[in-house]
Design a protein around this nucleic acid. Structure first.
Length: 424
RNA sequence: GGAGAGGUGGGUGAGUGGCUGAAACCAACGGUUUGCUAAACCGUCGUACUUCGCAAGGGGUACCGGGGGUUCGAAUCCCCCCCUCUCCGCCA
């Protein structure tokens, strides 16, 4: 969430920037400031009141120690009213504070000044593209048909075991996935990301920390008995490693990578787009996360973008990088680049990665701070993350784009990981 | 699942009603010393909110797992909850 300081000090600027996300902030900002004023006033009264109580209590203690019981008892009688007042003030405060926080949580992150305004995916800016769209044989088919033909991914079996959106990968299909995961992790660690294996379920605090709660409650699988959430992305457990942590500036940047399955309910999305591997309830993803100094977070963002781009190049996939417009960006992001690969048999671009700078938005929420050397003040760090990469759509594109009459060709870089050159 | 123990500052750990926002030690940071390293010595060393100040800095309040209660006064007493650890059971 945004800090009150930012909102108070740059009110007009905040409203203007949020308009790029088509968020009309005027009313809510006004209520936030008004509520914060109220909060401060109550806080001040309460503090003064408590100060008086404290000093009286000290006096009473001293009087008793000196054996002046009569005076002590007289002082005691004065505290009753103060206590009453404190009680009602702190009641007011505990009404105002959650209300204020609730409002703050409803304000999206400020988009970076370079974010184009625009309403939908159509208005996104193609930054650059690469790779060649392959010429497919005439009888080429989409990946769900290939999956069946070579018996490498079984969607019906997944339905039997669990339900729609939980495919079973078989034989070379399973090994192909595993090869991709290893390849991605190796690429990431070679680029300086430390590999971690986080839990696949998180508690409520973690889900709030990265912003999945309260907004996206219905999108996560929830274990009621234990009050845990299945992770929708490794971003959640990995970024939360640093929840409530104060780092030294010299420790930055912190770069981490993790492979995890991801679980998403995808409530309300049905239809053509969800066919095959295009949208699943469980899928594999390798994630990269950075905690960075505010002065250098945009350098990190660019670095992450070219890192992901490098991986796509090695996979010989046709890709494009788009900078999201205000209307298409997520609530929490300040600047996002999406990576899309062209799925030749479906004739469409599939999103395979989203790389974002959240600036201080997540970090503020989860109290992730740092200190400059010799400085007493804490400052809010910046967090970034991106997929490198999400498996299913990469698999879809690889299967479709590399299909030949003799089978599916495995990209050269993956062959050592797979141990075979063709899926046939 | 059964039984027990415990949650205090970056760590260890003292603290059973006021002198404790919290000893001591370790770590960390700054300095003195030193040919270098080590050691020794001195100093600093929680966070948040708020207020005064141009600033340096000062003041106030809160926080000893979380919430509530008793009391003039709670880390310390009472109640509820959460979590961790140990042993047993089960088990990859």
């Amino acid at each position: 969430m945004l800090t009150l300081k930012v909102i108070r000090d740059n009110k007009e600027e905040v409203i203007k920037r949020l308009a790029v996300k088509h968020f009309d902030a005027k009313a809510i900002i006004d209520s936030i400031i008004a509520l914060d004023d109220k909060r401060k006033a109550i806080q001040l009264q309460l503090d003064n009141n408590l100060a008086e109580q404290n000093s009286l209590a000290k006096q009473i203690g001293k009087l008793f120690a000196e054996g002046k019981a009569a005076e002590a008892n007289e002082a005691k009688s004065k505290t009753a009213e103060l206590k009453e007042t404190s009680k009602s003030l702190s009641q007011e405060l505990s009404d105002v504070e959650p209300e204020l926080k609730k409002l703050l949580m409803q304000v999206p992150n400020l988009p970076h000044t370079s974010v184009p305004s625009g309403h939908s995916a159509e208005d996104n800016l193609v930054v650059r593209s690469g790779g060649l769209v392959p010429e497919l044989p005439k009888d080429s088919v989409p990946h769900w048909d290939l999956a069946k033909k070579y018996d490498i991914i079984d969607f019906e079996l997944g339905v039997k075991i669990t339900g729609a959106g939980f495919p079973v990968y078989k034989g070379k299909g399973a090994k192909f996935q595993r090869a991709l995961i290893n390849f991605f992790l190796d690429e990431n660690t070679a680029a300086g990301y430390r590999e971690v294996q986080p839990p696949h379920m998180v508690n409520e605090d973690s889900a709030y920390g990265t912003g999945q709660l309260p907004d996206k409650d219905g999108q996560m699988y929830y274990m009621q008995v234990d009050n845990f959430y299945m992770i929708p992305t490794a971003e959640v457990p990995v970024t939360n490693i640093f929840r409530d942590v104060i780092l030294n500036a010299s420790q930055l940047p912190i770069k981490m990578t993790a492979y995890t399955p991801c679980f998403r309910r995808e409530a309300g999305s049905y239809g053509k787009d969800v066919r095959g591997l295009n949208r699943l309830h469980q899928f594999d993803k390798v994630e990269i996360v950075q905690v960075q100094h505010p002065d250098r977070s945009y350098d990190s963002l660019e670095e992450m973008v070219s890192h992901v781009e490098g991986i796509l190049k090695k996979l010989e996939l046709p890709y494009r990088i788009v900078k999201l417009c205000g209307g298409d960006m997520s609530f929490t992001s300040a600047l996002t680049y999406d990576f899309e690969v062209f799925s030749a048999a479906q004739q469409r671009w599939l999103e395979v990665s989203s790389v974002s700078n959240f600036e201080s938005y997540q970090a503020n929420r989860m109290m992730l701070r740092y200190k400059e050397d010799g400085d007493k003040k804490t400052q809010i760090a910046h967090t970034l993350n991106g997929s490198s990469l999400a498996l299913p759509r990469i698999v879809a594109a690889l299967l479709e784009n590399n299909q030949t009459p003799n089978g599916i060709r495995v990209p050269r870089v993956l062959q050592p990981f797979c141990g075979f050159e063709m899926i046939d």
